[in-house]
Nucleic acid binder design. Structure first.
Length: 263
DNA sequence: CATTCATCCTGCTGGC
DNA sequence: TGCCAGCAGGATGAAT
């Protein structure tokens, strides 16, 4: 569910609340999310970092990896409150951080610094990092025979794009999702590259896209769903040319595109 | 190696 | 109204 923009909104909101706070207690309500919480009780929260869709809560030598999967939420409240599908409760000196996850595809793992560095390195290029240049983009696309939609969803190459923003980025780039990466012209690659960051930035300005489960750290929704051009719009007319938007399963995920604007 | 596909889980919606 | 197939913002590991 949450893609880069949603995770980044949560990170920005949370960092203001929890940086410098002490982790006083951890309560694990579902063993699927078990981690040795005692090891980090008493630690100070040094930072909250993001790469792609992954969050890393820095606690001295330990890092807590947080991934929201399809339905994960991180809600900060001043007092302990009950939410549906809560899995892990973090009690901080100034409040409570509740991790909820209806579908249980999320992850909470405690990693030693070295392991965190290794995991971090295995995550692909983050579009908001300084390394995300056209040159590096060309390198990761080099020789790839997979469909461009699959390429965008693969977190080992570029990290953070999920099913909604993949469709939105490809529409804005005028590229058909079935196109193989190695058939894209230089001009098309440039177009694709130049649309990735602006779409994600626009979504962040809207505090993310709420279709179903996504909630900000205060429980409120995002608003980018009102500005989607193709995602979820099968049968509606293309905002650019008026043709009907099509839905097709690509890589087992619903993909939306305009058959006449995207070649 | 690269690529495709089922699978993990729970709940909701739409068609019959 | 009831049932059931299909769908949902992700990622992985097995099979090919």
């Amino acid at each position: 569910m949450p893609e880069l923009p949603e995770v980044e909104v949560i990170r920005r909101e949370l960092i203001a609340k929890i940086k410098g706070q002490k982790l006083e207690k951890v309560e694990i309500l579902d063993n699927k999310f078990y981690f040795p919480g005692k090891a980090v009780v008493g630690s100070e929260i040094k930072n909250l970092l993001r790469k792609g869709k992954y969050l890393f809560l820095e606690l001295g030598d330990w890092h807590l990896l947080l991934h929201l999967g399809m339905s994960g939420q991180l809600i900060f409240t001043e007092e302990r409150r009950n939410f549906p599908y809560e899995k892990v409760i973090f009690y901080l000196s100034n409040g409570v951080l509740t991790f909820c996850d209806q579908r249980k595809f999320g992850r909470v793992e405690l990693l030693r610094r070295e392991l965190k560095d290794k995991v971090w390195q295995q995550i692909g290029l983050d579009p908001f990092s300084a390394q995300f240049t056209f040159e590096r983009f060309l390198q990761v696309t080099q020789g790839k025979s997979q469909r461009v939609k699959d390429f965008l969803l693969n977190q080992k190459r570029i990290a953070g794009i999920g099913n909604i923003y993949a469709s939105e980025i490809l529409f804005r780039s005028g590229i058909h999702p079935q196109r193989k990466v190695n058939t894209l012209s230089m001009a098309e690659k440039e177009k694709l590259f130049t649309h990735i960051k602006p779409v994600l930035e626009e979504a962040i300005r809207c505090q993310g896209t709420t279709i179903r489960n996504y909630a900000r750290s205060n429980g409120e929704t995002g608003s980018f769903q009102h500005f989607l051009l193709v995602y979820g719009k099968a049968g509606k007319s293309c905002p650019r040319c008026g043709s009907l938007i099509q839905r097709e399963k690509i890589a087992n995920r619903s993909t939306y595109f305009c058959p006449s604007c995207q070649k």
